[in-house]
């Protein structure tokens, strides 16, 4: 099967000229379509750095990252923005919704950037907010939603562009148990029913328990890669 993400020998060194910090030390990783993979490891192990590099938000010092056969290092800044818009969905630890837009508008926003028609947007927004259980909160702004609800909107937003995969950085870090369970149910359901690939970093054992593949990072290196039999 074609790889969605192919990470080869990726290194990332911060402050190379002063006090070098080696965040990634030759990471190799391949993600196939439909995976539900957790990147785990202690703080500072390089999880977020790796996600940022895969998402084209950060540039690796060495190695290559290929997404859907495209070496993303070869993309210009504007092409990378376009690439992210079309193929990658992001879920951030701090939700990062646009505060002045309602839940519906936040989800619709990415599709608007993609130039989707009004009709298509309306249908998809309805579908996604229903999928994350927020169909009755569509006109609320982020400040009027709980953390769990905001993160569910963030997941819906990430899915709005119909991305190839979703990168989620500590998506449950700010959520209580109930919201975490709820969010994980939604993510698992979307993964299973719509075959959406999820790659997320986490410390949270509840999340790890739901993952079907667990990649453990330590000091910028993958120390274990375990596929959980379903």
């Amino acid at each position: 099967m074609d790889k969605v993400i192919k990470v080869q020998g990726v290194t990332k060194t911060y402050n190379p000229d002063t006090i070098p910090v080696h965040a990634l030390r030759g990471v190799n990783l391949e993600i196939e379509p439909g995976e539900f993979t957790a990147l785990v490891g202690p703080s500072g192990s390089g999880k977020t750095t790796l996600l940022n590099a895969i998402g084209g938000l950060d540039t690796p010092t060495g190695g290559s990252i290929t997404i859907r056969g495209q070496d993303i290092a070869k993309l210009s800044d504007s092409a990378m923005i376009e690439f992210r818009k079309q193929y990658i969905g992001f879920v951030f630890q701090a939700y990062n919704l646009i505060p002045v837009l309602t839940a519906k508008e936040n989800v619709e926003f990415v599709m608007l950037l993609q130039g989707k028609s009004q009709e298509e947007r309306a249908t998809r927004v309805k579908e996604l907010l229903k999928a994350v259980g927020l169909e009755d909160q569509i006109d609320r702004r982020p400040a009027q939603l709980s953390g769990g609800q905001q993160q569910r909107v963030a997941v819906a937003r990430a899915l709005a562009s119909k991305p190839m995969f979703i990168l989620a950085d500590e998506p449950t870090a700010n959520l209580d148990s109930k919201s975490t369970a709820n969010l994980l149910d939604i993510m698992a359901k979307l993964n299973k029913e719509e075959n959406i690939t999820f790659l997320f970093s986490t410390h949270d054992q509840r999340v790890i328990d739901r993952a079907r593949r667990i990649v453990t990072l330590e000091d910028g290196q993958i120390i274990s890669d375990e596929t959980i039999a379903s």
């Binding site: 504007s78 923005i81 818009k85 646009i98 990415v110 937003r157």
Partner: peptide
């Protein structure tokens, strides 16, 4: 700043 970063991340053109 943070919000601008997010918007650029999710595909908004500069």
């Amino acid at each position: 700043q943070r919000e601008f970063g997010v918007l650029l991340s999710i595909g908004m053109k500069r």
